[in-house]
Design a protein around this nucleic acid. Sequence first.
DNA 1: ACATTTATTGTAATCGATTACATTGAGAAT
DNA 2: ATTCTCAATGTAATCGATTACAATAAATGT
Lengths: 335, 335
Amino acid sequence: MVRIADVAKLANVSTATVSRVISNAGTVKKETAEKVLEAIKKLNYQPNMLARQLRRSETKTILVVVPDITNTFFSVVLRGIESVAIENGYQVLLGDARNDVESETSFLTILGQKKADGLILLTARTDQKILEDLSQDFPVVLACEYYEGSKLPTVSIDNVSSARKATEYLISLNHKRIGHISGPLNIVVGRDRYRGFHQAMAQHGLSVDPSLIQEGEFSFESGFNLMMKFLSLENPPTALFAGNDEMAMGAIKAAKSKGLRVPEDLSVVGFDDIQFASIFEPALTTVAQPTFDMGQKAMRLLLNLIKDEELEKDQFILPDKLIVRESCKELTIEE
Amino acid sequence: MVRIADVAKLANVSTATVSRVISNAGTVKKETAEKVLEAIKKLNYQPNMLARQLRRSETKTILVVVPDITNTFFSVVLRGIESVAIENGYQVLLGDARNDVESETSFLTILGQKKADGLILLTARTDQKILEDLSQDFPVVLACEYYEGSKLPTVSIDNVSSARKATEYLISLNHKRIGHISGPLNIVVGRDRYRGFHQAMAQHGLSVDPSLIQEGEFSFESGFNLMMKFLSLENPPTALFAGNDEMAMGAIKAAKSKGLRVPEDLSVVGFDDIQFASIFEPALTTVAQPTFDMGQKAMRLLLNLIKDEELEKDQFILPDKLIVRESCKELTIEE
DNA sequence: ACATTTATTGTAATCGATTACATTGAGAAT
DNA sequence: ATTCTCAATGTAATCGATTACAATAAATGT
């Protein structure tokens, strides 16, 4: 392995000088620098990052913990993160929690071990206190998910208002019996969308039939199964707000399997606007999150934190958008 | 920051002893070890990995370069990799090439910089020579994609024979005018599936009409557009073998848009069996790759390489499987 | 002509662990 | 009683860079 000392010897200078050339200190005479550069080239020298990192005590690496890397929603956020990381000379260490809280938490030790300079969490299922303590000592940013009433720097959308918006769209289409298949209620975004749904209903003077509310787990299957439940009701819903796109698709599949047509017999709106939402038939009306932007923003915030810069604020709410496609239709009164 | 010296002082031993306790050397008296452990606990000490890594010159980190993290196919492979990495005390540094060869290549410097102990490439678009040189100096494993006639350790399926199998399935359904939308031919898997298609046709004495062969780019859109071309032909194909599932779905969408029914008027088989393949309508008949297993196997190989163990062989071909669903139908003669 | 900057380079400490080698003392062997 | 062995621990070198401080020479000011 070529060391800086080898370069120094070949160029007939001290290691300090070589180091100065590498770091572009600008205090090295031109000719000397050229000699050094030449030696570096000749020896094909690459600095050992471990040594540099130890000395500088920074790794130029950040840790990203994802609840489920297999979910395109998160991988797009991740891409946003990595794009600005790379731009700024940082690399991304990946922690795939596989939807398991314990494994999520176990990744956090990496920070104390100095293997990363900061952390972006795309999930907020770890005990809140643990994380808040951690963020005393290390730069931490949350994205997508968050803790209620926490000061932790966060980038997300306003799930409550988005859910309200989605529900109101259904209401504007004259629907009154609207069902909701929520995400897990122990996850904030599941809870917030659930709230938004209820708010919208209340604001429009619509009562919600408890049998039209079910808690899913963000999966296609759960959407399918819970919709089946709805369909076996005496008086099934005419519209459905699903906590995410997968469940929306599952629900639509269930409706179709029972011979219903979507949107003619059932209107459905989803959440997230995953890639497949537009390909699915009917193309899904859904709430689009600015996934890539959220990732970028989160990384920028983390960079600020790492450089010890003041944040203009802690909570960043990015704009979402209701994407109207083909899965909803106005309810025509027929009695 | 708590250092090993602090622990040593508190426990009234030398740093060497503390280090021995940490690494479980077994040469430390029980009572001493207990004192040390207590001190570690009291100070909440965590070893600085940078220092350890520098001294041991190993990072317990591996680099995974993915062509497109946004593609579920690859993220499942990644999950396989990470699962055995974690099991073995390794972490995963992620390189998302965003389908760009240059950025793919640029990640490779990380190895020379000693930021990772080894490399798994889920893409093989970098210049072959560069990679083969690299693998002289560092542990490198390819997964999913590969170089033709290279000795680089590889985990993949046999794309040629799988494509043959897929095509033969169509042939067994009496189809004769079979089209093929291939992946990019500068990517091995695109090329190999293209070959497999031709082999199957030739073996069954079927000539392939050049106008029924188009090169796509593995995207939904390209599948759609190229199918549109086929459909404007005087004599369109009755069946299609698409180089991957996205293109297959695009093609089906195109056919539907022209009023054709799938599979009644057009049979389609895809490749990869991505999550959405079974949800899509009609559910896609496709070739399933053992994605998760491939990731695991690749990581195990890399571990062998890192430990300087002999590999039993270099090329590992894992079994794939034709998943028959609803997108194909027997051709009934009608003239 | 001498003092004072300034530019350039070198020497050696440092980051925080691991580990080769040295040391100590107790018990075993002769 | 003396030597030898071995277990347990300590001392200090080491990994490969960066950088504080020192040193030197050249340039500038008066």
